[in-house]
Computed example of a mutant assay.
Amino acid sequence: MQNILILGGTGKTGRRVAQRLEADGRPVRTACRTSGSTPFDLADPATWAPALDGVTAAYLVEPSLGAGGDRMPRFVAEAVAAGVRRLVLLSAGGVGEAGDDHPLKAAEDAVRASGADWTILRPDWFSQNFSEGPWLPSILAGTLSLPAGAGATPFIDAGDIAAVAVAALTEDRHRGRTYQLTGPRAIGFGEAVDLIGRATGRPVRYVGIAPETHLERQVAAGVPPAVARLLTGVFTAIRDGSAPEPADGVERALGRPARPFEDYVSETAASGVWN
């Protein structure tokens, strides 16, 4: 049986991947800096070998887009040299069309050229950003401000991403495939927060702001300028109607449709995280 390493094992997708694998009785090693079963820091190569010892498959996550493009390729090379034979990379939507300077481009290239079996996942914006990520404080405060205008994007449930990752880690039929992962329909931020407001019984509104304002706020909050520009550009692409169309990656990988955003909202509201 495979010994599976999960980078970012306590993150949005990594935690869910580990839970699903453990429920199936598979040996799992969760690796991250502050918790998990194995101390690991992608910025510290001294932590790589202990994490890779005895591992045959790995779920790869780059936790910091501002960290530079060479450390994931170096980790991939070390992983394959250590005996890892299957790699599943969490990339991002739009990387295929992005220039070579995109921080995940080199990671994708390294996985494809590794000599191991590989699968690449390119998800759209996570639905869970509203409940576990950067937008939660704004949702709790009642106003979400972003430079996405009236544009819409097909939010993807992190549970669907995890389900595809588990399939790719444990089944041969996903070898050499790149999956575009989206929800079943595009949703504007105004509609998204309205659904959350109705489910929680309190007002939540969305306010479109200028890209320059968003960029300034991100940099002031400590986001590296290059990353802040990249993320602001993604929002403005949504505003301008260039967000990805809904894709069938979840259905191709799992044989079922992607989870609707409305189901995510209902379940999350019931959990009380937005109270």
Score class of each variant (00 low, 15 high):
Pro45Gly: 12
Ala247Gln: 12
Gly83Ile: 09
Lys12Cys: 11
Val61Thr: 03
Pro246Met: 07
Val227Ala: 14
Tyr206Arg: 11
Gly11Asp: 13
Gly142Leu: 10
Ser145Asp: 15
Val234Gln: 14
Glu97Leu: 11
Leu195Asp: 10
Arg71Asp: 06
Leu231Asp: 09
Ala199Ser: 06
Arg185Lys: 12
Ala168Trp: 00
Asp109Leu: 13
Ala220Ile: 12
Ala168His: 02
Arg217Pro: 00
Ile156Arg: 00
Asp24Leu: 12
Leu21Glu: 00
Gly69Lys: 15
Thr213Ala: 14
Gly149Thr: 12
Ala152Trp: 09
Gly149Asn: 10
Thr178Glu: 10
Phe261Thr: 01
Val80Ile: 07
Leu195Tyr: 05
Arg217Tyr: 04
Lys12Pro: 01
Leu169Phe: 02
Ala46Gln: 13
Gly66Asn: 10
Gly115Pro: 00
Val223Leu: 15
Pro246Gln: 11
Ala148Trp: 02
Ser37Trp: 01
Pro50Met: 11
Leu7Thr: 14
Leu90Cys: 06
Cys32Gly: 10
Ala167Arg: 12
Thr170Glu: 00
Thr38Ala: 08
Thr232Phe: 10
Ser35Val: 11
Gly9Gln: 05
Ile156Thr: 09
Ala82Phe: 09
Val273Thr: 08
Ala221Glu: 15
Cys32Thr: 13
Val76Thr: 07
Phe126Lys: 03
Thr153Asp: 06
Thr10Trp: 14
Val61Cys: 03
Ala92Arg: 00
Thr47Phe: 09
Ile161Lys: 02
Lys105Cys: 12
Ala92Asp: 05
Gly94Met: 08
His214Thr: 04
Tyr206Cys: 11
Gly201Pro: 06
Arg33Ile: 10
Leu104Pro: 01
Ala106Glu: 06
Gly201Tyr: 05
Ser131Val: 04
Gln218Gly: 13
Val204Lys: 05
Gln19Gly: 14
Ala226Gly: 04
Gly208Leu: 05
Ala67Arg: 13
Arg217Val: 11
Glu22Arg: 10
Glu78Ile: 07
Asp240Trp: 06
Val193Arg: 09
Ala107Glu: 03
His214Gly: 07
Asn3Ile: 02
Ser91Ile: 03
Val273Gly: 05
Leu52Ile: 07
Ala220Asn: 15
Ile4Val: 08
Leu5Trp: 02
Pro154Ile: 08
Ala67Met: 11
Ile238Leu: 13
Thr56Gly: 15
Arg20Glu: 02
Ala165Pro: 01
Gly69Ile: 14
Val95Phe: 10
Pro103Ala: 13
Ser127Ala: 14
Ala226Phe: 05
Gly36Trp: 03
Arg259Asp: 09
Arg205Met: 11
Pro184Leu: 12
Thr200Cys: 12
Trp135Asn: 12
Gly83Asn: 11
Arg29Gln: 06
Ala148Pro: 02
Ala67Val: 04
Ile196Lys: 06
Ala168Thr: 03
Ala168Arg: 01
Val55Phe: 07
Ala253Ser: 12
Phe126Cys: 09
Leu230Tyr: 10
Tyr264Leu: 08
Pro225Arg: 15
Val250Ser: 01
Thr47Met: 06
Gly208Pro: 15
Pro225Trp: 15
Trp125Asn: 11
Val265Ile: 05
Ile161Val: 13
Ala237Gly: 13
Val76Trp: 03
